[in-house]
């Protein structure tokens, strides 16, 4: 088994609002191995972005990590001071944000913004940092980098800004790159460019990537393993083939069935998931998907299921139907593994 770079154990994060405690993450565990790409998928409010902010310890008031461990190379980040985190952020763990328009500083040139991280973490002189910045711009395929390095963010297009963000993130050769919806704000043809670039760089620099997205297509393209989140919990995790071809959790199955298939010829009706996601101010005691699940049993409303082994290897799913004593639900048995999409 390969080495674990990041291990998240029973992480809990809450926001203490004037309405009460919003439990955004309610105990999640997963790991990222060296050199791999892990995808985290979920809808808005599922806790996927809060997960990344918790790992970076960039949570703003009133957000707080209330429990669990985040082991990065064996060291727990939860107890690190802000000063210690500053040495890690950008240096060992870097992040790309969703919106390239607002995450760059409009009053500094692209070159200055790339150099900033290099000067800070690698103790290079201004001149050497400039050289390195130029090299980074070449690496992310910015045309005419000698000229572009002097540009301000507003002179860049959306796709180029995201390339610049990637250049900043990778400039200190981080071990882990967290990409939070890196292509959501971009058009499909530009998205294809950026995903291609991320895949190439991943292979070239051997950086581990944690890709957070709501787009199941993007994950299938880039990642080797997936974590599916819902209502602040991990519903299912496994290799992309496990999740896309043999999903075991009704939520994953529902999600895959609700997206249209581009490659199929006949017109099929979409099968939506009824209802809406749970309110995390008053999270349900049982399974968060209970209210929307067509296979729901009595126990699902009373007790939160643990992660059960599903199929082979690392495939795990949080559903009572996988309990050895669970009654056999014929529809579920029929559908699991039968929702292969795209083909």
């Amino acid at each position: 088994m390969s080495e674990k770079l990041l291990e998240v154990k029973d992480l809990r994060t809450s926001f203490f609002t004037h309405l009460g405690e919003v439990k955004a993450i309610r105990g999640i565990s997963f790991d990222v191995e060296k050199g791999e790409s892990l995808g985290i998928v979920g809808e808005s409010g599922s806790g996927k972005s809060v997960t990344s902010l918790s790992i970076m310890k960039l949570l703003l008031y009133p957000g707080k990590i209330v429990g669990g461990e985040i082991l990065f190379n064996g060291e727990d980040l939860v107890n690190k001071s802000n000063r210690e985190m500053m040495g890690i952020r950008g240096n060992e763990i870097a992040m790309i944000f969703q919106d390239p328009m607002t995450s760059l500083n409009p009053v500094f040139t692209i070159g200055e913004q790339i150099s900033e991280a290099i000067i800070k973490h690698q103790k290079l002189s201004k001149k050497d940092a400039h050289e390195k910045a130029l090299e980074m711009l070449k690496l992310v395929n910015i045309p005419d980098p000698e000229k572009r390095i002097k540009n301000f963010p507003h002179e860049f297009s959306g796709g180029m800004r995201q390339r610049a963000m990637i250049a900043i993130a990778l400039s200190c050769e981080p071990e882990l790159l967290i990409a939070d919806e890196p292509t959501t704000a971009l058009d499909v043809t530009i998205q294809a460019q950026i995903l291609e670039l991320m895949k190439n760089l991943n292979a070239k620099l051997n950086t581990s990537t944690m890709l957070i997205t709501h787009d199941l297509g993007v994950v299938a393209d880039v990642c080797s393993r997936v974590v599916v989140m819902y209502g602040g919990l991990i519903m299912e995790k496994g290799s992309i083939r496990d999740i896309y071809y043999e999903p075991r959790h009704p939520y994953t199955m529902g999600l895959l069935k609700s997206i249209p298939k581009v490659s199929s010829d006949e017109k099929q009706r979409l099968i939506p998931i009824p209802g809406t996601p749970p309110d995390l101010l008053h999270p349900p005691t049982g399974c968060p998907f209970y209210a929307r699940c067509e296979y729901a049993m009595r126990i699902c409303n009373q007790q939160q299921p643990p992660l059960f082994k599903a199929g082979n290897g690392q495939h795990e799913s949080m559903c009572w139907l996988l309990h050895p004593d669970a009654p056999i639900n014929e529809k579920y048995e029929q559908l699991k593994g039968g929702v292969r999409i795209g083909k």
Binding site: Q191, A192, A220, L256, S263, G342
Partner: peptide, 26 residues
């Protein structure tokens, strides 16, 4: 090019696809 850049939620197809990646911006 537009159609080939749609990410398809199927790992086998994603692996096999020969994507036309457009250069440059609009």
């Amino acid at each position: 090019a537009l159609l080939s850049s749609i990410p398809i939620p199927d790992p086998d197809i994603a692996e096999a696809s020969n994507r036309i990646v457009l250069q440059g911006d609009v």
